[in-house]
Computed example of a mutant assay.
Amino acid sequence: MEYQEAANLILQAKNMYALTGAGISTESGIPDFRSDTGYYKEFDGATALSRDVLLGDPDRFYHEGFVMLKDLFAKKPNAGHKALKKLEDLGYLKGVITQNIDNLHTLAGSKKVFEVHGHTRTVHCMSCHKTYPFQDYVDLVTVEEEIPPRCPACQGVLRPDVVMFGDMMPQDFQDAYEAMETCDLLLVAGSSLVVAPVSYLPGMAKKLIIINKEATPYDYKADVVIHEGIGQALTKILSLVEEGASR
């Protein structure tokens, strides 16, 4: 019943966006950040991935935060990412707002992706701002054992292009906020909706679908709530959308 209701909302929407969190990527082998089996069980992500630790305690950053970032590399998109890409191809989804830094929406082929917490494709020099591939950065740390890794051009400190605790939000967040001003349906997939300021975005949508294994603070106001695996749920909804569009 909930799947058909979700498909009907998608078929009727004019400006639908998706908001994704760590839950969509667990099926790609990436542990989430907040469950008992997530990264926060091993590290305190609020400090391990903070600007203060990156700059003030690089040894800790490269033994904790860096490990979390490096583990995202070489993962593959799953059925959830592919279903959202297909919804975009069909013209129903205008874009994906993601809290994830794992690049999986881009790898799946989604064209309009707002990476509101950054990504792990590149790093940049904090002095000269030159950009390098993330793999070059990994090699400096793991092969050259350079902590902190330095810019080959000017010897400034390199840092990942991810939004850390203590950083300003990037332009992608402002762009996502502006997109939400015209959003008539937001499909939330795999987000706990507790991390600000992204957690404010669902309140801007006229209608709301939430797919998440655990309850969220927005369940009470959502039009449809599905507590199930993201890949399975999105695949079912996509099938019903395609069936409805063919009638």
Rank of each mutant, 00 (worst) to 15 (best):
D102L: 05
T106G: 10
L69G: 05
N100C: 03
I97F: 10
V141D: 03
G91E: 09
H129C: 12
V113T: 09
K82V: 09
F73I: 15
A108P: 03
D102H: 12
S110A: 08
C128A: 10
N103K: 10
H81I: 11
L87F: 12
H117R: 07
D136Q: 10
Y62V: 10
V53P: 00
L87Y: 07
E88V: 04
K85C: 08
P133V: 09
Y137A: 01
H124A: 04
L55H: 04
L107V: 11
Q135T: 10
N103V: 06
P133Q: 07
K130G: 04
V96K: 02
K82R: 14
K86E: 15
C128P: 05
V113A: 08
V116A: 03
C128K: 04
H124T: 02
T122K: 15
N103S: 07
H117L: 07
N103P: 01
G65Q: 01
Y62M: 09
D102T: 09
K85A: 11
K111N: 07
L69I: 08
K82Q: 15
H117D: 09
V123Y: 00
S110P: 03
G80P: 05
N78I: 13
L54T: 03
H63D: 15
K94H: 10
K86C: 04
T120K: 01
Y132E: 00
A83L: 13
A83R: 11
E115Q: 15
G91I: 11
Y92E: 06
K82F: 14
N78T: 09
L84D: 01
T98N: 04
L54C: 00
G56E: 10
F134R: 02
R121E: 12
F66T: 02
I97W: 02
F134V: 05
Q99E: 15
T131L: 03
L93A: 07
D59S: 14
N78Y: 11
C128G: 07
E115P: 13
D71L: 06
K76H: 12
F66K: 00
L93C: 08
N78V: 10
L93G: 05
Q99S: 13
R121M: 03
G91D: 12
T106D: 07
L90N: 11
H129G: 06
D57I: 02
H63Y: 09
A108M: 09
A108K: 08
K130Q: 14
A83T: 13
G109M: 08
G91P: 14
E64N: 00
A74V: 08
D102I: 09
G56V: 06
R121T: 05
L104T: 08
H63F: 04
F66G: 01
N100F: 02
V96A: 07
S50A: 01
H105Q: 11
S50E: 06
D59H: 12
K86L: 06
L54Q: 01
D89L: 05
L90E: 14
P58L: 05
